[in-house]
Measured scan of single mutants.
Amino acid sequence: TTTITTTNEEDARRIATEWKNKGYTVHVEKRGTTFRIEVR
């Protein structure tokens, strides 16, 4: 599992989409101002 964190919502969406397009399972969680993107 790879975890990526960013405070930028646009980055979070872009990163999540990129990983999904590669065939990975992506889970995005917002904690306060931080977005945690888990890639499996």
Rank of each mutant, 00 (worst) to 15 (best):
E29T: 14
T34P: 01
G23Q: 02
V39L: 08
K20R: 15
K30F: 09
V26L: 02
V28P: 00
G23S: 02
I37W: 00
I4W: 12
E10H: 09
E10M: 10
E9A: 11
E9Y: 13
G32K: 04
V26F: 02
T5C: 12
E29S: 12
R13W: 15
N8P: 01
N21L: 13
K22R: 13
T1G: 10
A16T: 05
K20G: 07
N8Y: 05
R40E: 08
I37F: 01
K22M: 10
N21Q: 11
K22F: 05
I4N: 02
Y24V: 02
G23W: 02
T2W: 15
T25W: 13
R36G: 03
R40K: 12
E18W: 15
F35M: 03
K20Y: 09
N21V: 08
E18N: 07
K22P: 00
H27P: 00
V26H: 00
N8A: 05
E38C: 12
H27F: 13
T2C: 15
E10A: 12
E38L: 14
Y24E: 01
G23T: 01
H27R: 12
K30E: 05
R31E: 13
I37D: 00
E18V: 09
G32P: 02
A12H: 02
A16G: 03
A16L: 05
K22A: 09
V26Q: 00
D11W: 10
R31W: 13
V39A: 05
E38Y: 15
E38T: 15
K22V: 04
I15Q: 03
R14V: 06
T3S: 07
A16P: 00
G23P: 00
N8K: 06
T34N: 08
E10V: 09
W19I: 03
A12I: 03
T2F: 15
T1R: 08
T2Q: 11
N21E: 11
T2H: 14
R13T: 10
E29K: 08
I4V: 06
R36E: 11
R13S: 08
E18I: 11
H27S: 12
T5R: 06
I4Y: 15
N8M: 05
G23E: 02
T2M: 15
I15Y: 05
Y24P: 00
T6P: 02
H27W: 12
T17L: 14
I37L: 05
T25A: 10
R40V: 12
T34G: 08
R31A: 10
D11H: 09
N21W: 06
T34S: 10
E29Y: 14
V39T: 03
T2K: 12
I37T: 01
K20D: 04
T7S: 11
Y24Q: 02
T17P: 00
E29C: 14
E10R: 09
G23I: 01
W19K: 02
I15A: 03
